[in-house]
Design a protein around this nucleic acid. Structure first.
Lengths: 302, 302
DNA sequence: AATCCTGTTTGTCCTAGACAAATAGCGCAA
DNA sequence: TTGCGCTATTTGTCTAGGACAAACAGGATT
């Protein structure tokens, strides 16, 4: 039983939207507390979470809001391709996660990194693992704390690898890449993966962490004489907000600074002045082509 | 010029609050676009940001909303104690930050770490640096992106040191410590510093990252057979919320699991079943005393 | 098959009123 | 003086329904 504020947090649907759906579609249909305020039962919250995912994936609210929970669940499982022929690595990972063994998780991840090398680990295995964990979580097979544990350990391992690479002198050349996310995006994992790929491509990277106000991103781009502004968008991010943020950022940033956007966010589209990088493996060639096209001696050259 | 949604994002003030302040205090006083919608000028946004900080620090809206920007700036600088007899390290740090030189910042921080060692760096210098950056930022001497850069680099350096220590086999013994923050606390720096201190005390640490729902924290404590639950509270966190969250956590967690709370949050108080760790240097002795008092062979012993 | 046009859908904004929880201020007792 | 209990005020968040622009779907036309 959750309040409207709690539902907004947990499902990512604004209060206004929750109210207008109730008015228009008759769903959700929350109870009221002694005070006349909305109180959402658990099963409606579950349905709302599914609705959020389905809409982000392209379904239209009018068609699906109000459908019974089972129908929604069926559509959601169709989304991920319901034949989860998981990579063997993902199978192992999930079983370790479910056993709550932090030690083995750490060994598993750093073992994969060592065996595969940073590029293959980041570009090939990491997305698979992430998606498997996300899918498993949304199916209710993982606890919240297990998902958090994965994220933390993964970040630690990747951060370690990046530090090592930098210590070895990798990542000194142009372009100078500034990495961050928009204020709506608290997820820092994609950012770290992108940083790894840019470092491997020899780029100087400056990460500003997550959730930077748009104005500050532009200010940072000027201050650092950045060549490229790399923005990361997770699958949980609303595509419309992402587009709006990118558009605003583009108007505030000098034209000489390229804006590259990437991540698992469905519905992210190419746009005037914003380059869309669809996969991590596309980073290296994109950097190459930047180097070919870039005028010498301008920008970040100190 | 920002929309009400953008101001909500950037200042952390809900739309409802922005509208009701306008109605009650006559501030903010946004322009309207062709469509009748609120458009907030830059200086009002700046004032709103200061207001947010001042209110979090205990000022009451009725007294300060509507005051001119200069008065607000003065109050904000009074907040942190305006006699900033900064440590020389902090002076250097601030000047590097203001020069937007990521490379030198990285060298500065890892140089300090190498020279001082992990314990002195974490417990003695880090809090000073943090406070200096926070104070300088609230005085408007630092840009948002400079503060973000500091946080990121600091995290990277500390994470690297923790990885190294773990690689050297430090931190294998009990107590098993689970580290996290409450949902209202997005700041992960204090958590990382605490992890460093626990590792130095030889504890096995499992970090779950920030913003864990209270119920999931309790579930994690059971799943991992944790001995100690360590919660971190930054100075930006509301003390009342912190107390409420700790109380709820205490009721949900087995009595055998100790709850330790720490951080820069003013107004955090000792409480039945919750141990308050006031400084990072208090962690090591606290762990010692736990070891003396703990019954052998129970809990996390696998 | 691509492009234009039109009607519908949809999210977000608006106003203004209400109320509970948090806080301040006061009076009184130890 | 300090501590405690009471009342008045302050403050954030909820409520309602109306409005409108941007996004979208689907048919008609090139």
């Amino acid at each position: 039983m959750l309040s409207i504020t709690a539902v907004e947090r947990d499902c990512g649907l604004p209060k206004d939207t929750l109210r207008v759906w109730e008015r228009r579609y008759g769903f959700p249909n929350p109870d009221r507390d002694a005070n006349g305020e909305r109180v959402y039962p658990d099963d409606q919250v579950r349905a709302l979470r599914l609705l959020r995912r389905l809409i982000d994936a392209g379904h239209r609210p009018g068609k699906i809001v109000g459908q019974p929970l089972e129908a929604l669940a069926r559509m959601a499982s169709d989304l991920h391709g319901d034949a989860p022929n998981l990579a063997p690595e993902a199978e192992i990972l999930l079983s370790v996660l479910r056993s709550d063994d932090a030690e083995r998780l750490r060994e598993l991840l750093s073992g994969m990194l060592l065996r595969l090398g940073l590029r293959a680990f980041t570009a090939e295995i990491a997305p698979v693992l992430n998606q498997a964990v996300g899918a498993s979580w949304s199916r209710g097979e993982l606890e919240i704390h297990q998902e958090h544990l994965f994220t933390e350990q993964f970040k630690a391992v990747l951060r370690g690898a990046i530090n090592t690479a930098r210590g070895a002198g990798v990542g000194q050349e142009r372009p100078l890449v500034l990495l961050t996310t928009l204020p709506q995006e608290p997820h820092g994992l994609g950012l770290l993966m992108a940083e790894a790929m840019f470092i491997l491509a020899g780029c100087r990277c400056v990460s500003l962490g997550v959730q930077m106000p748009v104005g500050s991103i532009a200010a940072a781009a000027r201050a650092h004489h950045a060549d490229i502004l790399a923005l990361s968008f997770s699958s949980l991010m609303n595509a419309a907000q992402a587009q709006a943020g990118l558009a605003e950022l583009r108007t505030l940033t000098p034209a000489a600074v390229e804006i590259w956007a990437g991540g698992a966010c469905a519905g992210l589209r190419e746009r005037e002045g914003v380059r869309l990088i669809r996969a991590l493996d596309a980073i290296a060639p994109a950097v190459e082509s930047w180097r070919e096209g870039a005028p010498e001696g301008s920008g970040a050259a100190a």
